[in-house]
């Protein structure tokens, strides 16, 4: 046997090992360093792959503190919209979120803890005190936020949330409020990341949030 083919096969072996190592490395890199796996195809939410940055907010939380998009940074935030004189759909949505909370595994609730915001689109009737009493009745961690109509519009326009007033002679103030019933998920970069449309299924929502948080990270 001549030494030449021997060297050749040794070289081939080295190249093959190097290629395998490279492929393995890429696979490990992808699974460990970057996002683990894929988002499941069946999700209870519409996910925005790029996310949509939310800007220009100047609202008040129910303790009277300024609420800007900075409050979204570093945490996942659920937002839903309504008003405290709403007896059916708003309490139901509150209870859905409370139940989703209870269903989340500890891993999905780990710090930084996700936040829950109830945005009142009826600032004329919903004072901050009233908002606080309403939101915390359903869950001690719920935070009510509101502002004047212009400030509310800055948020709702960016999220594609609709609301409107309708005459209603039976209420003291003569109107009632119609509003979008979806729940919006904001990511820790302050980007709108997903929308949960009605009807809301508690188990599916909890699973979907776990998948989204795992996929997009903290």
């Amino acid at each position: 046997m001549s030494p030449e083919p021997n060297n050749q096969s040794r070289l081939t072996t080295i190249v093959v090992i190097a290629v395998i190592a490279l492929i393995l490395g890429i696979v490990v890199w992808q699974s460990v360093i970057t996002k683990p796996g894929k988002l499941p195809e069946q999700l209870a939410a519409t996910v925005l792959p790029q996310g949509k940055p939310i800007t220009g907010l100047s609202l008040k939380d129910h303790d009277g503190e300024l609420f800007t998009e900075q409050r979204f940074k570093g945490k996942w935030s659920f937002l839903f919209f309504g008003f405290t004189n709403c007896p059916d759909i708003c309490p139901t949505t509150m209870l859905v979120m409370k139940a989703v909370w209870a269903k989340l595994p500890d891993a999905a609730k780990r710090a930084p803890e996700p936040q829950l915001y109830f945005v009142s689109v009826d600032p004329q009737r919903d004072t901050l005190d009233k908002l606080k009493a309403y939101a915390t009745f359903y869950h001690p961690d719920f935070v009510g936020i509101t502002g004047n109509l212009n400030q509310i519009d800055v948020l709702t326009n960016q999220l594609g949330v609709l609301y409107g007033y309708e005459d209603d002679e039976t209420t003291d103030d003569g109107y009632t409020v119609n509003h979008s019933a979806q729940i919006v998920l904001i990511d820790p970069d302050g980007k709108m990341r997903a929308v949960f449309s009605t009807p809301h299924n508690v188990r599916e929502m909890a699973k979907t949030f776990v998948a989204i948080r795992n996929y997009f990270g903290e």
Binding site: I89, E166, S180, A181, Q182, T198
Partner: peptide, 8 residues
């Protein structure tokens, strides 16, 4: 609830 908008 129509087109995601809830009204009574």
């Amino acid at each position: 609830t129509r087109d995601g908008m809830a009204k009574m």
